[in-house]
Write a protein that binds this DNA or RNA. Sequence first.
RNA 1: GGCCCCGUCGUCUAGUGGCCUAGGACGCAGCCCUCUCAAGGCUGAGAUCGCGGGUUCGAAUCCCGCCGGGGCUACCA
Length: 462
Amino acid sequence: MAVSVRVRIAPSPTGFAHLGTASTALYNVLFARQNGGTFVLRIDDTDMERNRPEYELLIFESLRWLGLEWNEGPDKGGPFEPYRQSERLDIYKEEAARLLKDGNAYRCFCTPEELEAERKQAQLEKRPYVYSRRCLTDPPEGRTVFAVRFKVPGGEVAFTDMVRGDMRFDASLIGDFIIVKSDGYPTYQFASPVDDALMKMTHVIRGEEHLSNTPYQLMVIDALGYERPAAFAHMPLILAQDGAKLSKRKHPESNLILFREQGYLPEALINYLALLGWNPGTEQEIFSFDELVSVFSFDRVQHGGARFDWEKLNWLNGEYIRNLSDRELALRLRPFVPNVDEQTLERAVPALKTRMHKLTQAIDYLNYLWTDPAPPALDSATIERVRSAIDALQDVEWAPGAIEAALESAVAASGAGKGKFYTPLRDVLTGKKVSLPIHYTLALLPKDVALSRLHRAIKAQV
RNA sequence: GGCCCCGUCGUCUAGUGGCCUAGGACGCAGCCCUCUCAAGGCUGAGAUCGCGGGUUCGAAUCCCGCCGGGGCUACCA
């Protein structure tokens, strides 16, 4: 019987969860779901300087919002606890000691300045830099502060990548790298493979930035005598507008929480992310999550990075909004327009639906309901039209259909066009040039409020 | 600098030697619908397939060189 699939994502709480986090999480979940596997969330918090505990909560929240729930993780436990690297320090210490004892690692007493000098020198001589191994062959005397370096065995490291096929790297080009920092914390190149092995990961699916890190990690796993993951998958990077890798610091707009705040639907973002770097080979663009699970495959994944395109996301999000039932859309809109009562919101939805590519846009359409626009200046002909509108509306049933009918006969009687007639009404009611269709604009307002705004506009003229 | 990945309309992509006068989607333009804004319908512009050499009867598709972009090369992850 085959071992069941285990995959993971391992974000570091050095910032908010961003598009890249979501993207790798998605592919991991898709693959796990396809194979009845387990999706693990591990927190790689070994950077003492930059970790902030509150970011961990943000990561949980963002992933849950997207519906990318994990089976094992720091908040829900599992058979390989703990799932926070900061709580596994003794494990790394032990493994490092083992490497030290077996001669696969050694202590390095070099100072950052000395290493910097080595690097500069190599650059000057135009030779590729690898650590000199000074501390292996001729360690300086009398120093107490040290880091631990992995002794790179050289040779070739080969592995299978589900996206790119067979990969091979020449390890003689890789210098002895640090696996334990002088503060006692493990580096990513060490903690990550140790945990992948210990947590029995069968597949490692992550961003392309880790492709060249893979040989480092495989060498560590080999030296420790653990079993390697069966395969890797290095997914194309999500690029910013300038073509550079999306980063938390340079691209704060990639914060997932912001997507929620702007009114993007999680299912739309998922759909868009899936299409960034992967394509089904058909012309289908809209995919439910279950459809993605059934049709996704690594061999149709792009090898090059893809620029994130807000325009296309907006379109997709609009499509998803339009496909929501009125009830469901009203529900999702609630938090964005807390000033609007439930009933009014539900009545607004049919008109709102085709006019939004994100939920926040409802605010622009509805805020005339809870604000009071100043009466505009009107010429005498316009005043007449407003007056006849008031007359027409006076005894009408307060619903869009009836209002529309009443207004249309008033328009016909006035001899003016709908534009001339409706534009000032819109202006008086909302103070804006753009609004929902005029009969909706009226109907959503309480009748007395609507009529008093119209009355007031007429009186305001001298 | 070294190693690795990539290079088709502005963007995301289809395409694995002839089906390509290079297809789709977003965006853009025009028209229709229309009280505004959308949505919807129709039409259109937009890519000498990074460049230069080959191979071949025939290349976006194969080979070589170059150029360009990105990633890694940290006591960040």
